[in-house]
Measured scan of single mutants.
Amino acid sequence: SKGEELFTGVVPILVELDGDVNGHKFSVSGEGEGDATYGKLTLKFICTTGKLPVPWPTLVTTLSYGVQCFSRYPDHMKQHDFFKSAMPEGYVQERTIFFKDDGNYKTRAEVKFEGDTLVNRIELKGIDFKEDGNILGHKLEYNYNSHNVYIMADKQKNGIKVNFKIRHNIEDGSVQLADHYQQNTPIGDGPVLLPDNHYLSTQSALSKDPNEKRDHMVLLEFVTAAGITHGMDELYK
Results as ranks from 00 to 15, higher is better:
residue 2 K to R: 13
residue 12 P to R: 05
residue 18 D to A: 07
residue 19 G to D: 00
residue 20 D to V: 10
residue 20 D to A: 06
residue 22 N to S: 05
residue 25 K to R: 09
residue 25 K to N: 11
residue 29 S to F: 09
residue 31 E to V: 13
residue 33 E to K: 09
residue 37 T to S: 12
residue 40 K to T: 04
residue 40 K to E: 04
residue 45 F to I: 03
residue 46 I to S: 02
residue 46 I to T: 05
residue 47 C to R: 01
residue 47 C to S: 06
residue 48 T to S: 06
residue 50 G to D: 02
residue 51 K to R: 11
residue 56 W to R: 00
residue 57 P to H: 03
residue 61 T to S: 14
residue 62 T to P: 03
residue 62 T to S: 14
residue 64 S to L: 01
residue 68 Q to L: 01
residue 70 F to I: 06
residue 70 F to C: 06
residue 73 Y to F: 03
residue 74 P to S: 08
residue 74 P to T: 15
residue 75 D to V: 12
residue 77 M to T: 05
residue 77 M to K: 03
residue 80 H to P: 01
residue 87 M to V: 05
residue 89 E to A: 07
residue 90 G to S: 00
residue 92 V to D: 03
residue 92 V to L: 06
residue 94 E to D: 07
residue 96 T to S: 10
residue 105 Y to C: 02
residue 106 K to E: 07
residue 109 A to T: 01
residue 112 K to M: 06
residue 113 F to C: 06
residue 114 E to G: 02
residue 120 N to S: 13
residue 122 I to A: 02
residue 122 I to L: 04
residue 126 G to S: 02
residue 129 F to V: 03
residue 130 K to Q: 11
residue 130 K to M: 07
residue 133 G to C: 14
residue 139 K to Q: 09
residue 139 K to V: 04
residue 141 E to D: 14
residue 143 N to I: 09
residue 144 Y to D: 04
residue 145 N to H: 12
residue 145 N to S: 11
residue 152 M to T: 12
residue 153 A to T: 13
residue 158 N to D: 13
residue 159 G to D: 11
residue 163 N to I: 08
residue 168 H to L: 08
residue 169 N to S: 09
residue 170 I to N: 14
residue 170 I to F: 04
residue 172 D to N: 11
residue 174 S to R: 13
residue 175 V to A: 10
residue 177 L to H: 11
residue 183 Q to L: 10
residue 183 Q to R: 13
residue 184 N to I: 12
residue 189 D to V: 12
residue 190 G to S: 12
residue 192 V to M: 12
residue 194 L to V: 05
residue 196 D to E: 10
residue 196 D to A: 14
residue 197 N to Y: 09
residue 197 N to I: 09
residue 199 Y to C: 10
residue 199 Y to D: 01
residue 200 L to P: 00
residue 203 Q to H: 15
residue 205 A to G: 04
residue 207 S to N: 06
residue 208 K to N: 06
residue 208 K to S: 09
residue 212 E to V: 01
residue 212 E to K: 00
residue 220 L to V: 15
residue 223 V to G: 02
residue 226 A to D: 10
residue 229 T to I: 07
residue 230 H to N: 13
residue 231 G to C: 14
residue 235 L to V: 11
residue 236 Y to F: 12
